[in-house]
């Protein structure tokens, strides 16, 4: 690309950046905090319930909580509610485990029309896939470091 065009592009891009309507950062942060906080509070209530009602120990209670929260996330996705929560909650609804359920159930629903193998099967992890790859990779790496340092 010639220098003149590069200069034009740079000027235009800077101008666009300056003029572009911005996201409401403060409002989005507050909403993410409230929505994420609410989801986590519900999770804590589920955990406490498991501990006191079913006499679960801490480890069992966290597995119980994960199962219940994933179920709720999947159910709300199926009912078409979770995307509305996501619209307002942003990261607040993505980060908790319910968001993970949403990222798996939504492609499963969407791509069912392409069949169970090439649709649901291959698209199921199209969004959650990268999270799994790097999540698992990181845990292996940290595990190795821990093994040698210990």
């Amino acid at each position: 690309m010639d220098v003149k065009q590069q200069k034009l592009n740079k000027e235009y891009q800077e101008y666009v950046q300056r003029k572009m309507p911005k996201s409401y950062l403060l409002r989005d942060c507050v909403l993410a905090f409230l929505v994420g906080g609410t989801i986590c509070t519900i999770g804590q209530a589920v955990s406490n319930f498991g501990k006191s009602y079913f006499n679960l120990n801490t480890e069992e209670a966290s597995a119980f909580t994960a199962i219940v929260m994933i179920f709720i996330g999947a159910l709300l996705t199926g009912l078409g509610v979770y995307d509305d929560i996501g619209k307002y909650g942003g990261a607040g609804s993505v980060v908790p485990i319910t968001g993970f359920a949403n990222s798996i159930v939504s492609p499963a629903m969407e791509f069912k029309k392409e069949g169970y193998v090439f649709g649901v099967g291959s698209k199921l992890f199209s969004i959650a896939g990268p999270v799994l790859v790097y999540g698992i990779s990181t845990s292996v790496l940290v595990g190795l470091i821990y093994f040698f340092v210990k």
Binding site: M20, K22, S23, D84, E110, F111
Partner: peptide, 17 residues
């Protein structure tokens, strides 16, 4: 949406532009 972006039921936030 399903071709260019995300599944419909995926909870995402869209920027103002």
């Amino acid at each position: 949406e399903r071709q260019y972006r995300f599944p419909l039921e995926m909870g995402t936030q869209r920027p103002p532009t």
